[in-house]
Amino acid sequence: MATTPSPLVSAERLQARLEDGEPVVLLDVSWQLGAESQRPAYDAAHLPGAAWVDFETALSGEPGAGGRHPLPDVATFEDAMRAAGVSNESHVVVYDRWRSLPASRCWWLLTYCGHECVQVLDGGFPRWESLGLPVSDAAVSPSRGNFVATPPGLDVLDADGAAEYAERAILLDARPADRFRGENETVDPVAGHIPGAVSAPALANLQEDGRFLPPDDLAMRFTAHGVEPHAEVGVYCGSGVQAMHTALALEVAGVGSQTAVYVGSWSHWITDPDRPVAGPA
């Protein structure tokens, strides 16, 4: 299996591959923080053949001491991917309806578990639909895959590791800038950020139509935040979703060394009152 050249695929390129009969496993992981389940939207319209993957049960563990969205149990994630038709040799394309945030989470998890050919549909379902490309309301029952997770292929930070990155390397905070400053905090019970972190909101990595900025523009943006081509970069957010979106953007930009994600993020950091907090501003 050829190595995927980019973690993103355009709607136009994906449609061409599907028309050519290339085998692609499509995953719809639509989800939005604080919103109702997106399953009804999936049932009404999805990419033809796309399997539904539930974010809360497949892409996240139970909320608690590890934060709002800790890593799922590996066996649970494996089983969900197999049920969706994923095998280790599959070419997987994942998408959502919310600015590629949950899709980036699935991309990161599959890559973390050793899958070598997974891409995010750039612009997600909204752009696919806006181009008039085919959608379906037909039920999807994929043939069960045989995906087996292998040793982690990406770096994960704990709280001590995040603090260490903030001190000696670069730690990006992917939440909106006002939450970084300790303003308008409506999600977590403590406002502020990890001391030494740099504000780099994840959604600023996107164009107005929901697609990621071009690689050169992303590289310029991250360079402005102090990320040099071979710098060590850590990233966190509120609960590990926007952090993985930023890890994807860093991969697209080709800057920094392998990105380390603090999965527990702010929702885990604040569980220990002895950990320092910067802000509110």
Rank of each mutant, 00 (worst) to 15 (best):
T3N: 03
T3G: 05
L8W: 01
L8C: 02
R13G: 15
R13Y: 09
R13K: 07
R17Q: 14
E22R: 09
E22F: 00
L27A: 10
D28L: 12
V29I: 14
W31R: 15
W31F: 13
L33P: 03
A35F: 11
S37Y: 06
P40W: 15
A45E: 09
A45Q: 12
A45R: 14
H46M: 13
L47G: 10
P48T: 05
A50M: 07
A51L: 13
E56S: 11
T57D: 14
L59G: 08
L59A: 12
G61I: 05
P63Y: 06
G64Q: 11
G67Y: 07
H69S: 10
P70D: 05
L71S: 06
F77H: 07
E78C: 00
M81F: 14
R82N: 04
A83H: 02
A83Y: 00
V86M: 06
E89Y: 02
V92L: 13
V93Q: 13
V94T: 10
V94D: 09
Y95P: 15
D96V: 14
W98F: 11
S100I: 11
S100R: 10
S100N: 13
L101Q: 12
S104E: 03
C106E: 11
W107L: 14
L110E: 07
T111V: 11
Y112V: 02
Y112S: 14
H115I: 03
E116Q: 09
C117G: 10
V118E: 13
L121Y: 02
D122Y: 13
G124W: 08
R127Q: 15
R127G: 04
S130D: 03
L131P: 00
D137N: 15
S141W: 03
P142L: 00
P142N: 01
G145W: 11
N146W: 11
T150N: 03
P151N: 06
V156R: 15
V156M: 15
L157S: 13
L157R: 14
G161M: 09
A162C: 09
E164H: 02
A169D: 13
A169W: 14
I170T: 13
I170S: 01
L171C: 13
A177D: 09
A177G: 02
D178W: 04
D178A: 01
R179G: 06
R181D: 09
N184I: 04
T186R: 03
D188R: 00
D188H: 00
P189Q: 01
A191T: 03
H193N: 10
I194D: 01
P195Y: 04
G196D: 03
A197G: 02
V198C: 02
V198Y: 04
V198P: 02
V198Q: 01
P201K: 05
P201F: 11
A202R: 05
L203N: 09
L203Q: 02
L203M: 08
N205T: 08
N205D: 12
F212G: 09
D216T: 08
M220P: 01
R221A: 06
F222W: 11
T223W: 05
H225T: 04
E228M: 09
P229A: 04
H230R: 07
A231S: 12
V233P: 12
V235G: 06
C237R: 11
C237Y: 14
G238T: 06
S239A: 07
G240D: 08
A243S: 06
M244N: 05
V255E: 08
S257A: 10
G264F: 03
S265K: 01
H268K: 01
H268Y: 02
I270A: 05
T271D: 01
D272C: 01
P273R: 00
P276E: 03
V277Y: 02
A278P: 08
A281M: 00
